[in-house]
Every structure is written in C-alpha cells, then in structure tokens.
Design a protein around this nucleic acid. Sequence first.
DNA 1: GCCAACGTTGGC
DNA 2: GCCAACGTTGGC
Length: 153
Amino acid sequence: MQYWLFKTEPHEFSLQMLHDSPNQSARWDGIRNYQARNYLKNHVAPGDEVFIYHSSTTPCAIVGTARITTAAYPDPAQFNPQSPYFDAKATPSQPRWYAVDICWQSTFKTPIPLAWIKQQPPLHAMALLKQSRLSIVPVTKEEWVWILGGGIG
DNA sequence: GCCAACGTTGGC
DNA sequence: GCCAACGTTGGC
C-alpha cells in the first residue's frame, strides 16, 4: 500500500469530474513524462491511495482523495493519431506510455492549499515541493497522515 | 504574463 | 556523449 499525489488542471479534469464519471471512476491518462511513467508502471498498484491536486488554479490545493483500481496498462491515446497524446514512436507491442484507472474516494470540505503545505515543517521534504513539475509524486505515510489530520499528525 | 526549473531534441 | 537550443510545467 503506497500513497501518491496526482496533479491535474481542474479545467481539464477536476476531482468533481471524476466524482461525476460512471462508477465515479476514470482513466488517468496523458502522462508524458518518463519519471511519472515509471512511477505508474513500476510502483502504482491497485488499492493505493492518491491525493488529487489541482494545479494552475487559485489556490493550488489538494482537493480530495482517490483510489487506484487497476494496474498500469498502455495508454490507448498514444496510438490514436487524433489524440493530442499521440506518440508516433509508440506501438502496441512496444508501448511507451501508461495509464491507470482511479476511483473517487473523498472531496475535502476545505481544500488544502499549497501555501499551507509549504508552511508545515513535517512536509518540507515532500516530493511535491522538491520536484514541483512532476505530475505524479510519491507521498509518505507520515505526510499522508499529517495532511489528512490538518497538521495534527 | 512572466520566469525559473528542468526535460527533450538534435547537431556535432 | 556533450551541450546548446528549445519546449513545457506550474507557481506567482
């Protein structure tokens, strides 16, 4: 059981859209960064829990949680020439990019802003802060518990 | 809209 | 294999 943080731009795909999807589930696709891809392919597993983080918005914040429901599988968009995520160098026998399915789990009454996270000494080592451009980052159990507790640990 | 960080591409 | 140029992300 591991914990993760997935970033999304809410006008592209928000936590609310996940909640409103059939079975409150959706494919988390379009990951086109090798480090994020490697996390998906090698480490993300069904049952893992995920903070959903809204980026490029005001305020940037963790808005709730989701649960991983599948192992990583090849992202179909890489094979679709019509898709913005098309990758001409990917083939079904040698896929480059992966996706997972996730299920909505909770929406926080009060989102947890990035500014608050930055103020918490126990969160100073968070991968979110260290690699601010990565769209999938691991979260430790201690960080997960601290954030869910609103800073009470 | 700006800019820092950093990943990717391509010439050599 | 190096590195400059370029593109993208994402906070502010």
